[in-house]
């Protein structure tokens, strides 16, 4: 079995995790820019981070035969200071032409503030200007429902092609509104928050297998880099055929990512 990990924060993971991913059949991996667990002290810190995403991590992944791609942005958590966020936004065009950049992400909202929303809209403008797909982070826990609604409204106001946007971290109360509006949906498999493998499969069975993917979003928190293949195994236990599993864990992400000019369909057995 082979699969694409569409959302993993490898800067927070060990090289042994790359080894595990390769042995599990990971054919390509995508890393959105995110909050490092602390606020950067300067915009220059993001310059270094974008170098890490576009130079260091692709080289580290290549040692295990895994193509590494990334998304660029300033995350919503550090967008509360709009002046600081705009300084960082000015750096992003310097990296857009790097060969592993897929688009703008993971942008979105954290606590659903006016400033977060303004910076989100400026990211969307940038994606439109450079004709790039968008990966969106929806807020955590009690803030997700409201944040997802605000994000969808903002995207509609910006006249973005919903087919070029994936809205991530959906759960049962947000999946329908995302798919119904024509966006792609991402399910994040976390041991404690977001959703378990069993719930992700429930959502696939309820909302269908189209325009949806699942990811581990593994980072510095409680998370599992092998969550996608473990969910694939759970799908087999739930009597889904190999073809259906392969569609969800490989063909669907490949179809969305093929919109990104730098994405190359990975070699598979």
């Amino acid at each position: 079995m082979h699969y694409i990990e569409p959302h993993a924060h490898m800067v927070s993971r060990t090289t042994a995790d790359y080894q595990q991913l390769a042995m599990a059949g990971c054919a390509a991996l995508c890393e959105p820019a995110f909050w490092a667990g602390y606020d950067r002290a300067s915009a220059q810190g993001f310059y270094d981070y974008y170098r890490q995403l576009t130079e260091y991590e692709p080289a580290r992944a290549a040692k295990f035969g895994i193509p590494h791609y990334c998304w660029l942005c300033i995350n919503p958590k550090e967008s509360e200071d709009a002046g600081f966020a705009r300084e960082v936004l000015q750096i992003i065009p310097d990296f857009i032409d790097k060969p592993n950049v897929l688009g703008i992400g993971e942008i979105g909202l954290n606590k659903n503030t006016k400033s977060e929303l303004a910076i989100f809209e400026e990211h969307v403008d940038m994606a439109k200007k450079y004709d790039l797909p968008i990966l969106i982070h929806t807020p955590h826990l009690e803030d997700k429902l409201k944040g997802t609604r605000l994000i969808i409204d903002a995207l509609k106001n910006a006249n973005v092609d919903p087919g070029s946007v994936v809205i991530d971290h959906v759960e049962e109360h947000t999946t329908g509104m995302v798919l119904d509006a024509g966006f792609w949906a991402g399910m994040t498999l976390y041991p404690e928050s977001k959703c378990t493998a069993a719930r992700a499969i429930d959502m696939l069975e309820t909302f269908g297998m189209e325009n949806i993917w699942m990811n581990s979003a593994c980072d510095w928190g409680i998370s599992d880099p092998l969550a996608v293949v473990k969910c694939a195994l759970e799908m087999r236990k739930r009597q889904h055929c190999i073809k259906t599993v392969q569609k969800v864990i490989f063909e669907n992400p490949a179809r969305f990512l093929s919109q990104c000019k730098n994405f190359k369909l990975p070699e598979t057995p």
């Binding site: 503030t113 955590h140 826990l141 009690e142 997700k144």
Partner: peptide
């Protein structure tokens, strides 16, 4: 999940705390 969600609709003025509960 809906029961455990913030039911307001407008963006808030500013962050008061970064975490979600």
């Amino acid at each position: 999940l809906n029961t455990l969600s913030d039911s307001s609709t407008d963006p808030i003025e500013a962050v008061t705390i970064q975490a979600a509960y």
